[in-house]
Design a protein around this nucleic acid. Structure first.
Lengths: 241, 241
DNA sequence: ATCGTTTTTTGAATCTCATTCAGTATGCGC
DNA sequence: GCGCATACTGAATGAGATTCAAAAAACGAT
């Protein structure tokens, strides 16, 4: 019976349309002004139909954040499989985020908001689980690279687990995204290229962890070169720092 | 004319009572369930009176976050003035945050929420400004320590401004707070003592920046010792890691 | 102390959405 | 074409933030 399958496919398709509409509305009017009825209207459906997909607004937001993360996950996996040193791949994760942040800064803002107690706590358990599941490979990619580094001897565990090691670059990245997307903050402190700076700080951190080969972190040309290689070999695109 | 002054004092006092009530309600029922009418009721005032102080819920939340930051600012200033190496003082900032996070984890959750586009963008400009003003000395304390380090030669700028250097530990801290306060996340990855780990990662970062004197970051006893000294000399209290 | 004026407080009414659900339509097997 | 099941609809509901006209309190001059 193919009927049921088609139904399911249609349903999934419609869900995507809702998510796309929501994304567009957020870009247009800001997260602040997102209204459920507008999302439904934009897709020419009644609100009730929208609520067949998402039991609440928080549910929708978390679903959107999860959906948007797909691209990021894929990027991270490509970075993991990149033919580059473990160290360069760690920087590669940061480069991937840089690209993404350029392409759609709203994604990180949404992520920040949905991870807030208010939204996360109000979303249904199933959706939270789905969000975690979506992010698992992203995290795994990072852990894999750390594991590679340990195995190859480029990095010493010094008593830490892979997860514990991972916390450092992870926190650095999360923090930077939060700071960057908090409008008006960085301008005030006259920091122009936060993500470029981020590469350097991450590199300093890796040096501090004694992650071989150690780098001269003040060599800005090296970052440009790495970025160029990254866009060529990972993105097949141009990325101007 | 003392009347006007007294009015102002009373007004400010009442504002504090509203903020305290809000804080208590948040602790009790969670940020999610905070209601303006409850805050007013708890103080035996009508909602309208509450709205004389805060033009919106967002305004109240941001005011609360700002108010709660006072203690943190004072701590940071005490750390800056601590008779310790610039490096230890940087770790001291992290220790101060650790204490605060223990005492009232809600503070960081609230901060995270208010810095979200949705709240920040909906709060009135004046309140945003007040929040920034409150945080300025906090940031300044960090910048001062970095400046000390540069002057004493414990740290080399290597082409970066003080603000740019500051971004690294700042992002690390913000990121860690965000991760820690996102419930259910760390447990999943079996990280038990994130803040303790944080000290080590921060220390690694400082090593990577070549911040003298370089430390053996795997020497956990050293952190305990530092923490003990911190509680004795900065807090005059006991802090168990 | 009394009165007119100004300021503050009040809380019921209003308004804005998110959310629901009784009614309607549509699809499907017979 | 019929009857059942499933999906869709959007007006009605509900929760809670916000407003504002009326009431009360504070003030200050007489």
């Amino acid at each position: 019976m193919g009927t049921k399958e088609r139904r399911l496919r249609d349903f999934a398709e419609r869900e995507q349309r809702f998510l796309t509409a929501a994304r567009e509305l957020i870009v247009q009017d800001g997260l602040l002004n997102l209204q459920m009825s507008r999302v439904a209207e934009k897709c020419d459906y009644a609100v009730g139909t929208l609520y067949q997909h998402f039991v609440s607004k928080e549910d929708l937001l978390l679903a959107l954040a999860t959906d948007q993360s797909q691209g990021r996950v894929q990027m991270f996996e490509r970075v993991r499989d990149w033919k580059a040193s473990s160290r360069d791949r760690m920087l590669g994760f940061a480069l991937a985020d840089m690209m993404l942040a350029r392409r759609c800064p709203d994604h990180f803002r949404l992520l920040q908001f949905t991870f807030t107690e208010v939204v996360w706590g109000a979303a249904p358990e199933a959706r939270r689980q789905a969000c975690m599941d979506m992010h698992r490979p992203l995290r795994q990619a990072t852990l894999d690279v750390i594991d590679d580094a340990l195995r190859s001897g480029e990095l010493q565990a010094r008593g830490l687990s892979i997860e514990q090691i991972c916390l450092a670059p992870w926190a650095l990245a999360v923090g930077l995204h939060a700071i960057v997307h908090h409008e008006g903050l960085l301008e005030q402190y006259s920091i122009r290229e936060p993500y470029q700076l981020m590469l350097r700080h991450l590199s300093d951190l890796l040096n501090g962890m004694d992650w071989k080969p150690l780098a001269d972190t003040s060599d800005t040309a090296a970052y440009d070169e790495l970025a160029a290689r990254f866009s060529r070999e990972v993105m097949n695109e141009d990325l101007d720092l």
